[in-house]
Design a protein around this nucleic acid. Structure first.
Length: 425
RNA sequence: GGAGAGAUGACCGAGUGGUUUAAGGUGCACGCCUGGAAAGCGUGUGUGGAUCACAAGUCCACCGUGGGUUCAAAUCCCACUCUCUCCGCCA
């Protein structure tokens, strides 16, 4: 949600930003129209309420001295009816106002490069040396199936397309990755570990920006009106919804593992093989609540924490800066670390680090009290650290051997209890 | 799922129809006191909105949410949500 004053005063700027994101900027005009009507009506209703208050007080005085107050009563009754009528209209305007506010995308940070879609994203740095394979590297799904550590067919049997089951060392490696990543972020990077609910309410989803616009992308439990979280960002950010934090407690840094669920509506035919794009995947997520003036330095820190995971795993990767058309609805700026996949000779998104500035904080009403008592919205940031299932795929690809076995990265061996995955039946 | 109790400002808590412009306390901020601190004393301190220069001032709303009764609602009525206790079911 944007500051309404910013929309009112810097209208053209806001529209321009929305257009750059590839969204329809006419929503701003719709918003301003409702906003004006709403303000006009508030003025009228407030004045009426004021009148009623004063006349009511007169009635009280008359009754106290045992004088008839019938005439004034009648007048106040009329005012009351007028208020009631106008209130109905105002209620409707308020709903429109809120709904439109929630549908206006965040304003872009000025440094975001212009571009239409993901093809216009910019690689800003690369790390690691791509291994020289003396054989044709296999895609991760082949390696995994050959090793017997992943079962696509039975996953589909159980739940349908884009589901899979991990078996034996596959399951263990997944678990090892989760534990190691969380330990790393807690011990080295200073995050507090959270184990959040995986099902979240409509209010929570609205707070982080998935709703009301992207309901189709979410799994929904109708009976209870609960949603399966698409990322731990949702429960983590909502941890402090409707709270006023203390300045000295900032920054607050949380890390959590959560199974994440996405309907992948509209992704038909994209990454259909393997475990790159599935309906349920594991992710370790980092979320920060910071003071506004510090949010961009913490964004760098956050990106570094995500990249640190890849560095320690010794997986070649690059960092991409999202262009205006690919930043998305809620973020002001977004950077994606991408891991190298040798079978496709391609980099694949494995994390996504964003600064939402006060966009989510306004929606979720997360504020902090400064030392001199002022109340301000925090800035929220989040980044995957990392998408566990994709990391597994990246390991299977980058660490595969000619004989079909897969070496386990050094940092994980303590967690897996072995340094190599060999075929399992 | 059943029964009961409850939901008031950052926190605790009073308030069952009309000076409540939400008592009081805690916390916090500032000041006095002190060598410094604590204690003590004093002053200030809810949120949102309208007007407007996001100043001062003025006005309106907010006591879980939404309706209703009334000239007037934190206070009465109805529905819902959430929390707690007990019972039931259950990993």
């Amino acid at each position: 949600m944007l500051d309404p004053d910013v929309i009112r005063i810097k209208t053209d700027f806001v529209k321009e930003s929305i257009a750059k994101k590839g969204a329809d900027a006419s929503i701003v005009d719709a918003f301003l129209k409702v906003d004006n009507k709403r303000k006009e009506l508030i003025k009228k209703v407030d004045a009426l309420r004021h009148d009623r208050k004063i006349l009511s007080e007169e009635i009280r005085k008359k009754i106290a001295i045992k004088e008839s107050a019938e005439k004034i009563k009648e007048k106040v009754r009329e005012i009351g009816n007028d208020i009631k009528e106008k209130d109905k209209v105002l209620n409707d305007l308020n709903k429109q106002f809120t709904d439109l506010s929630l549908r206006i995308p965040n304003i872009l940070h000025h440094s975001v490069p212009y571009g239409k879609d993901e093809t216009d994203n910019i690689v800003i740095k690369s790390w690691g040396e791509i291994r020289n394979f003396d054989f044709q590297p296999k895609p991760h799904w082949e390696t995994a199936e050959n090793l017997g550590i992943i079962d696509f067919q039975r996953g589909v049997k159980i739940s349908g397309t884009r589901f899979y089951a991990l078996k034996g060392m596959g399951a263990k490696l997944e678990r090892a990755l989760i534990s190691w990543m969380i330990d790393l972020h807690v011990e080295k990077h200073g995050y507090k570990e959270i184990f959040p609910p995986f099902l979240v309410s409509r209010t929570s989803m609205t707070g982080t920006g998935q709703l009301p616009k992207f309901e189709d992308d979410l799994y929904h439990c109708e009976k209870d009106d609960l949603f399966l979280n698409p990322t731990a960002e949702v429960p983590l950010t909502n941890l402090h919804r409707d709270e006023i934090l203390n300045e000295e407690d900032l920054p607050i840094k949380y890390v959590a593992y959560a199974a994440s669920f996405r309907r992948e509506a509209g992704a038909a035919g994209k990454d259909t093989r393997g475990i790159i794009r599935v309906h349920q995947f594991n992710k370790v997520e980092m979320v920060m609540f910071v003071k506004p003036e510090e949010s961009y330095s913490y964004l760098e820190e956050l990106i570094n924490h995500a990249e640190d995971v890849l560095r320690l795993l010794n997986i070649p990767h690059q960092l991409k800066k999202m262009c205006t058309g690919d930043v998305g609805f809620a973020a002001a700026i977004k950077f994606d670390p991408e891991a190298y996949f040798p079978s496709q000779d391609k980099y694949v998104e494995i994390s996504s680090c964003s600064n939402f500035e006060s966009f989510q904080a306004r929606r979720a009403n997360i504020r902090f009290r400064t030392k001199n008592g002022k109340i301000e919205y925090v800035h929220t940031l989040n980044g995957s650290g990392l998408a566990v299932s994709r990391t597994m795929a990246a390991i299977l690809e980058n660490y595969q051997q000619k004989d079909g076995t897969v070496l386990i990265p050094k940092v994980l061996q303590k967690y897996t209890g072995t340094d190599r995955i060999t075929p399992e039946i």
